[in-house]
Design a protein around this nucleic acid. Structure first.
Lengths: 226, 226
DNA sequence: TAGATTGTTAATCGATTAACAATC
DNA sequence: TAGATTGTTAATCGATTAACAATC
């Protein structure tokens, strides 16, 4: 792939990259130098050609007959995702989910460093959650500007989502990881990734209902695409 | 759609159903009786035909020129997903994420009722988290059998995932909501839905890198599919 | 009635999978 | 060399979107 060829990589491909990365790191820790697409595909239950195309979209070039160098592949996937350089992020909304994310110490390996947390609740301000001080909302915009923070993690109640988003935008934040159920509006050039827990639950519920459902022949089974 | 026609509904459709449901409940609370696909599509930024097909797959029949009855539509989507009857679930692994999920009191509206939590840590056993008593792992299988629990929520560290899965299977659990990064093995007839936080982060990171990236024309913007 | 909306079939689009040449 | 694997083009498959008939 030519180096200037920034073609759009499909969301499906992007979503598979972290699973490759995880496997590659396991292989690396086992001292393995080389890996083939067929091997990756066998472990992750994916088509080898698909693995090859996904990897190629990160810019890696392999060696026919040999495969890919594990270290080079990790480097390629990580730099493609921007995960070799840690970006600083603000988290807003220190409820149960926000607290869980603040406690997740492995984000550093995935390019994310949560440097400050914010909450509207005066009770919480000044306290520390998993080593992160909780700051008042009115500091958000100024601090984002001063620290050049690019990423915001949104874990507030749905009704507060748009207001907090607006503060983030004012602070120059360019990417919002949205854990609310609210569809937030942002200006062009700002990226939003919404995580909806219930969409996964819908898949699970429906597949379960199907396996348990009447009218189904005995022994017939349903597999989710995990 | 004929009532015995259990055709496979695509995962993409299943994932959109919760967002329809949420909007419909907002409309219901506003006292609205009738809604059209074009209206739903306009709010959620989806093609009206796609909305119509998604809704049709739940079995609802609308009225030409009029639209769909809001109440009937909610009933149709909920019963399709099995969310009108609450299923009891066990949660295993009371770490930060498990704790957050235990604190999420709205699962009842989504067909899920977490009736017990389990952990391997003796320190945690006997304590109560968000009103849920934490039980020892060795009670899991027997209790699942006795209570006819069908759903397991897996929030343990990756290395414990397969072992706990096996206990769940022995207990007769038929659906596993897997929040670990481990690809678990289950027998036919058991449904697994794996939630990978990092796949969402990969999408965000890559889209951000693309908006910030060099070689990009000024003013060109990238939108995530939120 | 006319027009808006549903229901359904056809066309398009893009992702996945298959085929095969290039390569070490 | 022969065979395995990459890289790439073609075929297939399924989801999305468009077109249009049916309906109130």
């Amino acid at each position: 792939m030519a180096q200037d060829d920034i073609r759009a990589v499909s969301e499906a491909t992007l979503r598979r990259l972290p699973s490759y990365l995880q496997l590659l790191k396991v292989l690396q820790s086992k001292g393995r130098d080389i890996v083939s697409c067929s091997h990756i595909g066998a472990v992750l239950k994916l088509d080898p050609t698909q693995v090859r195309k996904d990897l190629a979209s990160t810019g890696i070039v392999g060696r026919p007959k040999v495969g890919y160098e594990v270290n080079a592949l990790i480097e390629s996937v990580e730099s493609f995702l921007g995960w070799n350089n840690v970006s600083e992020a603000f988290l807003v909304g220190v409820g149960s989910l926000g607290t869980a994310l603040l406690g997740y110490d492995r984000f550093n390996r995935y390019g994310l460093n949560i440097v400050a947390a914010f909450d509207a609740d005066a009770e919480k301000i000044g306290k520390t959650v998993h080593g992160h001080p909780i700051l008042p909302m009115d500091k958000l915009t100024d601090l984002a500007v001063r620290m050049h923070v690019m990423i915001g993690v949104l874990t507030v109640p749905a009704e507060a989502a748009q207001g907090v988003t607006n503060l983030m935008i004012l602070g120059g934040i360019r990417a919002i990881w949205n854990f609310t159920q609210s569809a937030i509006e942002v200006p062009p050039g700002v990226v939003v990734q919404t995580e909806d827990l219930f969409s996964g639950l819908a898949v699970l519920s429906s597949r379960l209902a199907m396996t348990l459902g009447a009218g189904r022949k005995q022994g017939e089974t349903v597999h989710a695409s995990y």
